[in-house]
Design a binder for these strands. Structure first.
Lengths: 131, 131
DNA sequence: GTTTTTGCAAAGTATTTGCAAATGG
DNA sequence: CCATTTGCAAATACTTTGCAAAAAC
């Protein structure tokens, strides 16, 4: 069984992620973290992101474009994905937790959780189109 | 501009997908379609699945495990993903289209659509555990 | 000292793409 | 014929992994 030792790299990755709201990919994190650890490897970044999300300290966000993103905000919230600029942003919206019970109603398995992604054109891309 | 010519391969892929409810991956489709076209290539399967989903005849389903799945049912419905057997199944549940307006409320962009995935343990995996 | 983590490089998946030949209209 | 699609192979994108050295405890 693993005992989980402290690592400066892992701590740094988590701290970086906590400062961001843009749901960066492993590669974006790797690029930025190299300002602090110039020799860190992409493998280490991936390993730590996996580990952190396994222990629930961060969340993996899949938008369907083939690249995983990460989020230090583990509280329940939903994401919007812009089809034009590919930005992923948090939505400020009412709780939709009731969809979980709606899904459980006629289902014979156990529904543990869910993820919702909204897709469309973000505010700034929309404005750029109009002008 | 492309004129979209008929192809037996594309037609066959679509027909195969229409007979299935298990949301197969490109590779699963490739395996099965080779019973009909032994020389078809995986590239052709991918190209046709992309094309079919671009023109809206099928839908791509991303469950977050890194492999895309495909669904010939393009009507609005939600999916459940079993964490044990990785099966992807349709949920028989009330319409939750209201989440779209909930998301649009405080949002300055345009929300075109959304996708919801539920995760947990399916009925048969749950039963196997208990026995 | 023992276990975990790292950096590096290589390998593993899933998907896309260039190109000449085949097919469709 | 001309445009699109195919099969094949190579390329790409993302992520995981084996291993010896370094760090943590």
């Amino acid at each position: 069984m693993q005992a989980l030792k402290y690592s400066r790299q892992r701590e740094s990755i988590k701290e970086l992620l906590m400062t961001r709201r843009d749901h960066p990919t492993a590669d974006m994190i790797y690029t930025d973290i190299r300002a602090i650890f110039p020799n860190i490897s992409l493998g280490t970044v991936y390993r730590n992101l996996s580990l952190l999300s396994e222990i629930g300290e961060i969340k993996k966000v899949s938008t369907g474009d083939g690249v995983d993103r990460y989020d230090a905000d583990t509280s329940p919230h939903n994401h919007f994905v812009c089809r034009q600029c590919n930005a992923v942003m948090d939505l400020d919206m009412d709780d939709i937790g009731s969809i979980k019970s709606a899904a459980s109603k006629n289902f014979d398995g156990i529904i543990e959780d869910y993820s919702v992604n909204f897709y469309g054109i973000c505010g700034s891309c929309k404005d750029n189109k109009e002008n």
